[in-house]
Design a protein around this nucleic acid. Structure first.
Lengths: 225, 225
DNA sequence: CAATCTAAAATTGTATACAGTATTATTTTA
DNA sequence: TAAAATAATACTGTATACAATTTTAGATTG
């Protein structure tokens, strides 16, 4: 394995299984666990200083979320993301992000719009500063506000789950030449159309954004095709 | 509680947690457990003749699927479906079913098309016979083939999950006067457009079908509005 | 009689123990 | 030496035990 798991801290009042789940998920997303790697319950439990019980329950959750694959009586493996997976995920996201953008155009508050605009400005500043960590942070916050504005919690969490499933490889897409400024332009178009309460234009902007993100991701994985 | 849980049979080679999960899910769907009812681990375990461990893991899964709500240290409750939930679910389904239909129009095989047509005929026969159980069975099979034909497993399972979340109340919609023949007409239009490989028409047919299903469901819940 | 405090019971959260199965290593045999 | 059989090991699946917390019931007090 590439790095180490985060130690489990007990100060919060979340059940252990939640903390364990977040820790393992983070380790998968940031590459501490490689795709295909086997995850063994005792080893994970020891490493985090807990028993197998919360580890098992965490793994069950990660399976539902698509981060690991379980084979009965054989063990758990970190899910390996394939070209096919990316195609599937973006087929769905194109459609759901379009929906979310359209709903947001109808339901967003002025305060939220202000937040989006502020985040856009910050995004540009961090691009100029070349601060990758902050860029990711602001990008996440931007989408969070947007999905929240759709006023559909299920939609929000489905999209978040799909987003997370490609997070481990999204870094490449982000660092693709010119993609960041493209992203900002697309976000700007999206916010503007939402601010104009133009549902159709918002949907279009969302569709274009997701399609471009997919194309860049594909190119960054396989530059030939 | 309204009825009784299915006894757990050990002949298959599925882990207990899976059998337990299916049993509880079924009990929620068919009304054995009412919305808001508290589910206690020991009680469930005793009733099914297993220990708490597989019951706990089953409940974790049902939580992710949206069938139960867990409050840490307080217990698990059968999820109560609200008008708002239905609105959320159908907002998403309208969009995803449209996607699935479009993809199916591009990717379906002739064998699958034949199966759909056969199921349509059966559907009509069971409507005439008034065999509600068979109607539900054929309807489920119909959608299963359709979603399978989209060649997108994630899409398939997301839609299935959303479908299941309203299954417990869908019976009412099914028994709404005239809805069954309407359903069949809509299915027919859908199959025809898919058979014609007409993506746009298929998407339209799917959208109409879902929107009508939602309207009927809403009317059957609250006839006034 | 109502309200509050206290103690008991019940339930969830976590840890550990045991059983069954799959994998690996070793030995045996051709 | 290679293949097959067998034993040893390791891991998952399930059950049980213990700890911590919440709920309930009862007692006490105003």
């Amino acid at each position: 394995m590439a790095g180490h798991l985060q130690p489990i801290k007990l100060d919060s009042y979340k059940p252990l299984r939640e903390l364990v789940c977040e820790s393992i998920r983070q380790a998968i997303i940031d590459g501490t666990f490689s795709p295909g790697e086997r995850l063994m319950e005792i080893q994970l439990a020891d490493e985090m200083g807990v028993s197998r019980t919360p580890v098992r329950e965490a793994i069950r959750k990660l399976e539902l979320e698509g981060f690991v694959v379980m084979i009965p009586r054989r063990g758990t493996y970190v899910a390996d993301i394939s070209i096919r997976d990316i195609t599937e995920i973006y087929e769905i996201r194109t459609c759901l992000d379009e929906l979310a953008a359209g709903l947001a155009a109808e339901r967003i508050t002025d305060e939220e719009l202000e937040t989006l605009n502020r985040l856009l400005v910050e995004f540009g500043q961090y691009i100029n500063a070349g601060d990758m960590e902050k860029i990711v942070e602001v990008d996440t916050a931007f989408h969070e506000v947007l999905y929240m504005a759709s006023r559909n919690d299920r939609l929000h969490s489905i999209i978040n789950n799909l987003r997370e499933q490609v997070t481990s490889i999204r870094g490449r897409s982000m660092s693709y030449p010119g993609r960041l400024t493209e992203t900002m332009d697309e976000h700007r178009a999206l916010v503007d159309s939402i601010a104009a309460r133009d549902v159709e234009r918002a949907q279009n902007a969302a569709r274009i954004h997701i399609e471009n993100a997919e194309h860049t991701l594909m190119k960054s994985i396989n530059p030939v095709t």
